[in-house]
């Protein structure tokens, strides 16, 4: 990524280096503020990760608490709900990826075919909007629309003579609610990147294809899609790399006692164990386990993407 910048020629002696630092001392002063911020708010917690291998007690502090090795990890692996939580996390995230990832690509390809610029702009303005709705309001809207007594969806079901469904309280509906609301909220915004990539495709390719009598559909398949393939690959890597990084907020808000068997995922579990029950070391271990899987995943996907298409992130 950005780190591997070309080394500039460094003046022979250390004195030259000192001179360069001194000449720009103001810049060092400036950057010291974010550096201090990162040390406290990002690096301090990283140092605190060691409590995953310790028995943390507030009185002894992070450093003074005794080491226990992998005990907390073992306890998590042996927990009766270990596989359930892992399965829920992977399933929710995987399903979300499988459904919510391709839709923005399709929408962007279709929008790109619109000739009327004003119509195109109107559609874009509309479909980007939900992105700025907060998760709380989004889930609130879901509940309002799905309410068994007054919700619009159940009104329609009743209209056709069906029985109202208690969406919020049934495990079977947790994942559909989660994924549908993601699609509703994020599709428009996710399509921006693809639209930008499509705008970068050489128009001559399309003109030549039109002369050869290629239909719109053919051009999408043979010009547009290959043209944005690198973008798709990069975003796919990021998405798979974040598979185990699924957000806490929506799952937490949609979680009820009635659907906890499918809605309990790693982040909500960490919150429950760590913040609510104050078992710091145990929940830190679960969090660390999650982060480790995530890194491995990112590495594997990146490697294989490089092998297959020559496009990788790093």
């Amino acid at each position: 990524m950005m780190v591997a910048k070309k080394r500039e020629a460094i003046p022979a002696a250390g004195r030259g280096r000192l001179k360069r630092v001194r000449a720009n001392y103001e810049l060092y002063l400036l950057i010291s503020f974010p550096v201090v911020y990162f040390l406290i708010f990002k690096y301090w917690p990283m140092y605190g990760v060691q409590i995953a291998f310790k028995d943390f007690s507030a009185s002894q502090g992070i450093w003074g608490s005794p080491w226990v090795g992998f005990d907390h990890f073992k306890r998590f692996f042996d927990a009766y709900n270990f596989w359930q939580i892992i399965r829920n996390t992977v399933y929710l995230s995987g399903l979300n990826l499988a459904i919510a990832f391709p839709i923005p690509i399709f929408v962007a390809l279709m929008l790109n075919q619109l000739r009327q610029q004003r119509l195109k702009r109107f559609i874009q303005t509309t479909i980007y909007a939900p992105y700025f709705i907060s998760t709380i309001v989004l889930v609130g809207m879901l509940y309002v629309f799905l309410s068994p007594s007054s919700g619009l969806v159940n009104q329609v079901i009743k209209l056709f003579g069906g029985e109202p469904i208690l969406f919020a309280g049934e495990s079977a509906w947790f994942r559909p609610m989660y994924i549908f609301s993601s699609v509703w909220q994020e599709t428009g915004f996710s399509s921006i990147v693809y639209l930008a990539a499509l705008a970068g495709i050489d128009p001559h390719l399309h003109e030549a294809a039109v002369v050869d009598g290629a239909s719109k559909w053919k051009r999408i398949l043979h010009i547009d899609l290959p043209g944005i393939a690198p973008t798709i690959v990069v975003l796919f890597i990021l998405a798979v790399g974040n598979l185990m990084n699924i957000g806490f907020e929506k799952a937490f808000l949609l979680q009820k006692d009635l659907n906890v068997d499918v809605s309990e995922i790693i982040p909500t579990y960490v919150y429950k164990i760590g913040i609510q029950r104050a078992q710091y070391s145990f929940s830190a271990a679960i969090g660390l386990f999650n982060a480790a899987i995530n890194l491995v995943l990112l590495y594997i996907v990146n490697r294989s993407a490089k092998k297959i298409s020559g496009n990788g992130l790093f």
Partner: peptide, 29 residues
């Protein structure tokens, strides 16, 4: 470009995109 040590500083910031303490260690901090 004339900021000596920019690679190191950049690395220092970017690391946090891939590694973070997680909920609980952040809470304790």
């Amino acid at each position: 470009k004339d900021f000596y040590g920019r690679g190191g500083f950049m690395f220092f910031f970017l690391v946090t995109l891939f590694f973070n303490g997680g909920i609980i260690p952040t809470y304790l901090m």
